[in-house]
């Protein structure tokens, strides 16, 4: 399944997920290298009230800096940015963060499509987006856009997803760069550093 990564380097990694994606994140995070040279953005659907829970959970499992994304904050290498509950997150040309409280997209805020699309326009072929487990089809349009602009669309193997619908939709509708089992995910991310 492993494909060779082209010579283009990774300047940003965005990971999107919904129901069932937390388990994968908790599996990935302890295995990440501490010298990751690109920013990592996490877009996960969740209830607005569980504000800092996700951030705290991920923080406790990595030596990388983890924080909830603040508006106008710059994406910096080696830091993990969690998109806040109930906001969409966009990325500006200068690589700063814009938050947006507009209409839900795919019944979701944050929407994975919104961040994937916005990141694709800025990072183009230097972008890697991973779509994890979930039970709606948010993220699929975003991955199409990532593909069109030369970035890499990575999809969790639906057979390893607690909720296979979201990665399944992506596999059907998007030509993936690679499909990965959840336990191969951390190694794939670490290799993006080379």
């Amino acid at each position: 399944m492993a494909q060779t990564i082209g010579s283009t380097s990774c300047e940003a990694l965005i990971i999107g997920g919904s129901a069932g994606s937390l388990d994968v994140l908790l599996e990935i995070f302890p295995a990440l290298r501490s010298d990751i040279r690109f920013p990592i953005v996490i877009v996960v659907h969740r209830k607005p009230s569980n504000e800092s829970l996700l951030t705290d959970l991920l923080k406790s499992r990595t030596t990388l800096a983890v924080g909830e994304a603040d508006e106008k904050e710059f994406l910096i290498p080696g830091k993990v940015f969690i998109v806040p509950a109930d906001y969409h997150m966009l990325i500006e040309e200068d690589r700063s963060i814009s938050l947006d409280y507009s209409e839900k997209v795919n019944y979701s805020r944050p929407s994975i499509d919104v961040t994937f699309q916005s990141a694709a326009e800025v990072f183009k072929d230097k972008l890697v987006c991973i779509l994890l487990s979930g039970s709606n089809s948010d993220g699929v349009e975003g991955l199409k856009c990532v593909n069109r602009l030369g970035g890499r669309a990575v999809i969790q193997n639906p057979n390893t997803a607690i909720m296979p619908y979201m990665p399944q939709q992506a596999v059907i509708n998007v030509k993936p760069h690679v499909i990965l089992d959840s336990h191969d995910m951390a190694q794939y991310i670490n290799k993006l550093n080379d």
Binding site: L90, I91, E92, E93, S98, D100, S102, V114, S118
Partner: peptide, 9 residues
Amino acid sequence: YSPASIKRR
């Protein structure tokens, strides 16, 4: 206005 947001609108 923030360019990415206004462009998206």
